[in-house]
């Protein structure tokens, strides 16, 4: 990664979509744009790589399956707090929820002539 990576893939995408004047500028810095694209992917990729490395590192996580977590097993044990198991009665009360139709606000905006993307 070099120093001139402060333009990102989105700049590149934006450029691709705008006028010829901008395209001319982009043509003068093709290497720059390419590197920039890599730089932005890089940050997310680095974090993702860290995640999968931790998952596979027994010093950080002894088990790799949720059902093998000893504290999860304790929670759902026959004499445990959630003894009727996952999706059981008590689990439903505490760990499940419901959702609400919130489309009225979106419809009202559209009725005003505001263009939304979804």
């Amino acid at each position: 990664m070099s120093e001139n990576t402060d333009c990102t893939r989105r700049d590149f995408l934006k450029l691709a979509g705008t006028a010829a004047a901008v395209a001319a500028v982009a043509a003068t810095v093709p290497g720059m744009v390419g590197e920039a694209q890599a730089a932005e992917l890089d940050l997310v990729t680095k974090r993702q790589t860290g995640v999968y490395a931790a998952d596979a590192n027994p010093k950080l996580y002894k088990a790799r399956k949720s059902q093998e977590n000893p504290m999860v097993q304790k929670l759902y044990a026959k004499d445990g707090f959630l003894h009727d198991g996952p999706t059981g009665h008590k689990a439903h009360l505490l760990l499940h929820t419901h959702y609400f139709d919130r489309s009225a606000g979106v419809k009202a905006l559209k009725a005003k002539g505001i263009k939304l993307k979804a």
């Binding site: 993702q48 949720s66 504290m71």
Partner: peptide, 19 residues
């Protein structure tokens, strides 16, 4: 603190798309 703190690799991958 383990009671509500111990976790597995399956939990940490929630951090990423696909996890």
């Amino acid at each position: 603190d383990p009671i509500l703190g111990e976790a597995t690799g399956a939990a940490t991958i929630f951090a990423t798309s696909g996890g």
